[in-house]
Amino acid sequence: MTQLHTLALALMAACATASGHAADTTAAEQLAHWSAQAGRPGNAELGKAFFTARHGGEWSCASCHGTPPTGQGKHASTGKAIAPLAPGFNPKAFTDTAKVDKWFRRNCKDVLERECTAVEKADVLAYLNALKP
């Protein structure tokens, strides 16, 4: 019975871990990654300008995430709540590489009608990482 109990606990722990947040990276590691891809450090001032600009379209990043993106945002068309984007206000922000890639791809296409460049990602991450409580 003890072995069965231990096995059951181990399975429950594995299921809880599998369904939880991946947390395979940090916002700082994401910034370092995109800065390396860009060939230069991210620039927070350029990131702020990029984040708030409409880029010729209807939306900016700030349209859904707010200015500054330190509180709960709201999707511009669906109204769905969005957790704070700045890592200083949301410890889960930018901690799952697959989600970071997915949301950069989707959101950049919504705002720019194309994927963001490594420079743009590095600059936005530098801006977001600079926001502190």
Rank of each mutant, 00 (worst) to 15 (best):
A122M: 07
L131H: 06
T67Y: 02
A126Q: 08
E58L: 15
L4G: 01
L7N: 08
Q30H: 03
L125I: 08
L125Y: 05
G39H: 11
L112M: 07
Q3N: 11
A32M: 03
S77E: 13
Q30L: 02
A93H: 01
A27E: 00
L4Y: 05
A23Y: 14
F94R: 02
M1V: 11
S77Y: 12
K132P: 04
F50E: 07
L11M: 12
T95W: 15
A23L: 11
F104A: 05
G47Q: 07
Q30F: 00
N43D: 15
V100G: 03
P91Y: 09
V100E: 00
I82D: 01
W103M: 06
K102P: 00
M1H: 06
L85Q: 03
S60T: 03
H75Q: 04
A22S: 04
H65R: 11
P91D: 06
F104C: 03
A44D: 00
W103Q: 13
A130F: 13
C61R: 03
G56M: 03
K92R: 12
P68N: 05
T26A: 04
S19M: 14
K121I: 11
T78Q: 13
A10R: 14
A27D: 02
T2L: 14
W59A: 00
P41V: 10
A83V: 11
C116T: 08
A8E: 12
A44K: 06
A81M: 10
A76Q: 05
K109F: 11
R106T: 13
R106L: 15
Y127A: 01
Y127G: 00
E29H: 04
A18I: 11
R105N: 14
A23I: 14
G39V: 10
T17V: 15
Q30G: 01
A18D: 09
Q3C: 02
T17L: 13
S35A: 09
A22Q: 10
A27W: 02
F50P: 01
A81G: 05
D96Q: 07
A22G: 01
Y127Q: 03
Q30T: 01
D24A: 04
T17E: 06
S35D: 01
C64P: 11
A38N: 09
K109A: 06
R114I: 05
A44C: 04
L9F: 03
A38D: 09
A27R: 02
A118Q: 01
E120P: 00
F104K: 01
G47V: 12
A10E: 09
E45L: 11
A62R: 09
Q3K: 11
M12H: 06
L112G: 02
H5C: 05
G56W: 12
K74C: 04
N107D: 15
P91A: 08
S77D: 13
A76G: 04
E45V: 15
Q72S: 09
